[in-house]
C-alpha cells in the first residue's frame, strides 16, 4: 500500500509488510494462461524484451492491477506492452486484430478460432 511517509518505496517491494494468512487456493492453469506464458518465453527468447522488461511494466501497472487482475491478465498486459515497445507489431495492428477477435464470438473457444 502506498505510504505517504515513505513515498519512494514502491508497491511491489513488499518484503516484510504485514499481511494475512497465506492463501491455500490453487487452480489449474487454463489453456489461455499457458499461451500467455509461452508468448512471454518466446518473445523474450527472440530478443523483443527481457524478463526485467516484463517486471518493469508489471511494477509500473501499479498495485491496483495486482489486486484486481489475475496473474496472467497482468502478464499479457505486460507482454503486449513490451512487444509494442520492441517493435513486434504496432498499436494500430493490435487494435485491428483485437476488434476482429472480439467479433468472432462470445466465448474464448469461438474467438480463438481464426476465421
Amino acid at each position: 500500500m502506498f505510504d505517504p511517509e515513505n513515498p519512494a518505496r514502491r508497491w511491489h517491494d513488499m518484503g516484510g509488510n504485514a499481511a494475512g494468512p497465506v492463501p491455500t487456493d490453487q487452480h489449474d492453469f487454463s489453456m489461455w494462461e499457458k499461451r500467455v506464458d509461452a508468448l512471454m518465453i518466446i518473445g523474450s527468447a527472440k530478443g523483443y524484451f527481457t524478463v526485467d522488461g516484463l517486471r518493469r511494466v508489471l511494477e509500473d501497472m501499479g498495485e491496483d492491477a495486482f489486486e484486481k487482475m489475475t496473474y496472467y491478465e497482468r502478464w499479457i498486459a505486460s507482454v503486449n506492452q513490451n512487444l509494442i515497445e520492441g517493435g513486434a507489431y504496432t498499436t494500430a495492428q493490435l487494435a485491428e486484430k483485437m476488434a476482429q477477435v472480439a467479433a468472432r464470438g462470445d466465448t474464448y473457444g469461438d474467438a480463438a478460432k481464426p476465421t
Binding site: 507489431y89 472480439a102 462470445d106 466465448t107 474464448y108 473457444g109 480463438a112
Partner: peptide, 18 residues
C-alpha cells in the same frame, strides 16, 4: 465456455500478430 474477457481477446490478438 465462459464469456470472452478483454485480456483473453488481447492474448489471441497478440498470438496471431506474432
Amino acid at each position: 465456455d465462459t464469456s470472452l474477457s478483454y485480456w483473453q481477446t488481447m492474448e489471441i490478438a497478440v498470438r496471431e500478430l506474432l
